[in-house]
Deep mutational scan, measured.
Amino acid sequence: NITAAIYDEIQQEMKRAKVSQALFAKVAANKSQGWLCELLRWKENPSPENRTLWENLCTIRRFLNLPQHERDVIY
């Protein structure tokens, strides 16, 4: 289940792992930094009809659900 909290989790994970938006986007969703920036802007007004947005957030959720040491190896 995806909630608005995922946006904060993304920010916290980037700080914790000391990774850039570009690197996080690449490893978590195989996307660009610009894409992640755009995604983070949706926090203010996520559209329930935007299926692509929710699919991408689900992809990021799966990455964030990995154990921390696995995420660190991927970075």
Rank of each mutant, 00 (worst) to 15 (best):
D8A: 14
T52A: 08
T3V: 02
E13K: 00
V27Q: 09
L66G: 09
E9L: 12
W42D: 02
S47G: 12
F63S: 01
V73E: 10
V27S: 08
Q12M: 06
E44N: 05
N45M: 05
A17N: 10
L40N: 01
L23M: 14
L64D: 00
F63V: 04
A28C: 12
V73D: 09
W42R: 12
L53M: 06
K43Q: 04
L39G: 02
D72S: 08
V19K: 02
Q21K: 09
D8W: 12
W42Q: 13
S32A: 08
N30H: 12
Q11P: 09
P46V: 15
W42N: 15
R61S: 10
Q33Y: 13
E49Y: 09
A25M: 04
E49P: 03
E44M: 11
R62K: 09
I2H: 14
F63H: 12
S47K: 12
M14W: 09
C58L: 14
E49C: 03
Y7L: 08
K18P: 15
C58I: 10
Q33P: 10
E9G: 10
G34K: 11
D8R: 13
R51M: 13
P46N: 03
K15G: 13
V27D: 01
A17T: 05
E70M: 05
A22K: 09
L36T: 04
A28E: 01
D72P: 00
I6R: 03
Y7S: 04
N45K: 11
R62L: 05
T59E: 14
A17G: 12
T3W: 08
V73N: 03
N56E: 09
L23H: 05
L53A: 04
N65M: 05
S47E: 05
W42A: 10
E44F: 15
I6K: 00
K18I: 15
K31P: 00
V19S: 13
L64S: 01
R71Y: 00
K18G: 14
I6D: 02
S32L: 07
A4C: 09
W42V: 07
C58K: 10
K43L: 10
S20V: 09
I10R: 00
K31A: 12
S47P: 10
H69A: 14
W35V: 09
A22E: 04
A22W: 10
N56F: 04
A17P: 02
R71K: 15
N65R: 08
H69Q: 04
H69K: 15
G34L: 12
L66Y: 11
P67R: 06
L53Q: 04
I2C: 15
E13L: 00
D72Y: 09
E9I: 02
N50E: 05
N30F: 06
R71W: 00
K26F: 04
N65G: 07
S20L: 06
L40G: 04
S47L: 10
P67Y: 07
L53V: 14
K26W: 07
D72M: 11
R71N: 00
E38K: 05
Q11E: 08
K18L: 10
Q21M: 10
Q68A: 12
L40D: 06
C58G: 11
L57K: 00
L66A: 07
K43C: 01
Q33I: 06
V19P: 07
A5R: 13
V19I: 13
E44I: 10
C37V: 09
E44K: 10
H69R: 10
H69W: 03
Q68P: 13
D8S: 12
M14L: 08
L23S: 11
A28P: 00
L53N: 14
I74D: 14
E49M: 05
R61P: 00
R41I: 10
M14S: 05
A28I: 03
E44S: 13
D8L: 12
R41C: 06
I74M: 03
E9K: 14
A22P: 15
V19Y: 01
A4D: 15
L40A: 05
N65E: 09
A17M: 11
P46Q: 06
V73A: 15
W42L: 09
M14N: 02
W42C: 04
Q21W: 14
D72E: 12
L57A: 07
I6P: 01
D8G: 08
W42G: 14
A25V: 08
W35L: 08
F63P: 00
W54C: 05
K15V: 13
P46K: 01
F24D: 00
E49L: 11
A28Q: 01
Q33H: 15
Q11F: 09
L36W: 01
N56K: 11
V27W: 11
A4M: 15
M14H: 15
D72A: 11
K18M: 04
F24Q: 00
V27T: 13
V27P: 00
D72C: 10
L66D: 06
K18Q: 13
S47D: 14
Q21C: 06
A5H: 14
D8V: 12
F24E: 00
A29L: 04
E38I: 08
E70Q: 15
V27H: 03
R16N: 04
R41V: 09
D8Q: 06
L64V: 03
E13T: 02
I74C: 02
K18Y: 14
P46E: 15
E55T: 12
